[in-house]
Design a protein around this nucleic acid. Structure first.
Lengths: 173, 173
DNA sequence: TTGGAAAGTCAACAAGGCTGACTTAAACTC
DNA sequence: GAGTTTAAGTCAGCCTTGTTGACTTTCCAA
């Protein structure tokens, strides 16, 4: 049976006219928009990274260490949602290359606290500026109200646990 | 130097009050929201796929073949933005498993036209319904105006070429 | 002082990207 | 009709980034 564009959620109850944005068709368009947009979202940093033989995983690590200087490895694992071994491989190359510094914890000396070096901050800046440039153009085109809606929907799409991390990044922590 | 949250774009000209949504800080929040939201966006289908020992690449192929039945391999390559070899690996398993059918073109017999089989349609439905369920909840929470803004910003983030593909999917083609 | 948490390491593997080289069949062009 | 181009498919080999599992070292806290 072909998709008629009327999802059961939109069809049920209330007459439906005000719920047209919940049709399966609208939802599918949103899904496709997320897919295509995410490609653009990562395209600019990816280009820069491939020149330096780093990958997206390195960018993510740099981003969140920049964002929460002194964060522990465990906290980073939580945020990134990957295994210790997977993160370790990335982190090790960043430390070897002098972009990230790992300092033994003062209070708890088992922990390692992560910081960007000067070089690390520099690369992070190049990457994030490339990414922001595209976002800035998109935001400007779309306007402030669209941006508010954009953020609102994205927050709702997140898993609750990710939402918690997102909220905790709000300021310094 | 610490990030003061005032991007140069927002700082320059016009007094700035109306442009606060363009600060580097706001842009960074948007970037993080995209990152966390995309994880949620793919989480549900990923779970289902891993049970069937398929991956996200299979989902994408199923999605776009479902969306444009009879599409050629070349067109699919364009949309997905991967190499022939990469797509072929995925497509081959889907054809072997009887989820996708490949038919020699009538007008140009070099081409192969791709279709979902009954089984393919079934899996696609399970996957997309899982994904839509989350989007539906997010849309409902955020409301129609937020959804319009969400879509508007996403369209601006896309590369022009991807935007073209996105627009061409609007209806049947 | 001992149990367990945090961190790190090694090995092996898989998915899904990539490049390059090559074949086959069909269509197009001169 | 011969030669070129195009669409698809295949083989081989590589890389990144994810996974499990097993193990060690360090060291805090009960």
């Amino acid at each position: 049976m072909a998709d008629n564009g009327l999802g059961h959620q939109a069809r049920s109850g209330q007459g439906g006219e005000g719920l047209l944005f919940l049709t399966d068709d609208q939802l599918r368009r949103g899904i496709e928009a997320m897919f295509f947009a995410y490609r653009g979202f990562t395209a600019d940093p990816d280009r820069i990274l491939s020149e330096k033989s780093y990958g997206r995983a390195h960018h993510r690590a740099l981003h969140f260490v920049h964002r929460s200087p002194g964060t522990t490895v465990n906290n980073l694992l939580d945020i990134l949602g990957v295994t210790k071994q997977s993160l370790n491989r990335v982190l090790r190359t960043l430390i070897e290359d002098g972009l990230v510094e790992s300092k033994v914890g003062v209070k708890d000396r088992r922990e390692r606290h992560l910081f960007l070096t000067e070089d690390g901050r520099e690369l992070e800046k190049v990457l994030s500026e490339a990414q922001r440039k595209r976002m800035r153009a998109a935001y400007r085109e779309a306007g402030p109200e669209a941006v508010a809606g954009f953020r609102k929907v994205l927050e709702q799409i997140m898993d609750p646990e990710m939402r918690r991390h997102f909220d905790q990044l709000k300021d310094g922590v």
